[in-house]
Simulated scan of single mutants.
Amino acid sequence: MDTRLQGRTALVTGATSNIGRAIALAYGAAGAHVAVSGRDPERGAAVIAQVRAAGGRADFVPADLDGSPGRSRALADAAVAALGRVDVLVNNAGVYPAGTTLTTDEETFDRIFAVNVKAPFFLTAALVPGMTERGGGVVVNIGSWIARLGVPGGSAYSASKGAVETLTRAWSAEFGPGGVRVNAVSPGVVADAGSELERLAVGMMRGTPADAVGRPEAIAVAAVYLASDDAAFVHGTVLDVDGGRTGVAVVAS
Rank of each mutant, 00 (worst) to 15 (best):
G176E: 05
H235P: 02
K118E: 07
T101W: 11
G7H: 13
R57N: 12
S37M: 01
R71I: 01
V115M: 03
A249C: 11
D192F: 04
G14F: 03
V34P: 01
S158D: 13
S68A: 14
L226K: 03
A79F: 09
R52S: 14
L75F: 08
I48E: 15
V234A: 10
A49Y: 06
T246C: 12
S172H: 06
T208H: 10
A201L: 14
P120I: 01
G31F: 02
I48S: 13
A163M: 04
V117I: 10
S158A: 15
V180W: 02
G137F: 02
V185W: 07
A30V: 08
L149V: 15
R245C: 08
R181M: 06
V151P: 03
I142C: 09
I146S: 15
I142E: 10
E217P: 00
K161W: 07
V115A: 03
T104N: 05
I112T: 12
A45R: 13
A193F: 06
G28S: 08
P177D: 04
E196F: 09
V182I: 08
V164N: 05
G247W: 11
T132Y: 04
N183M: 01
G244L: 12
L11T: 01
E217F: 09
V248M: 14
A156V: 06
A81F: 07
G188Q: 11
W171E: 06
G94I: 00
L127P: 01
G70Q: 14
E42S: 11
R148T: 13
N116Y: 05
G176W: 01
A170Y: 12
K161E: 13
A191T: 00
A45I: 02
R245K: 15
A53Q: 15
R52D: 13
D211P: 03
E165T: 07
V241N: 12
L75P: 09
A10S: 07
D192H: 06
A15N: 04
D64C: 09
T101R: 11
L149N: 14
Q6K: 15
R71M: 12
A49M: 10
V234S: 02
T16Y: 02
R85A: 12
N91C: 07
V139N: 09
A227H: 03
G178T: 01
G135V: 02
P120N: 06
G150R: 15
G247L: 14
D240R: 13
G14N: 01
A81C: 09
A114R: 06
G207I: 10
G179V: 02
G70F: 05
G67W: 06
G84A: 06
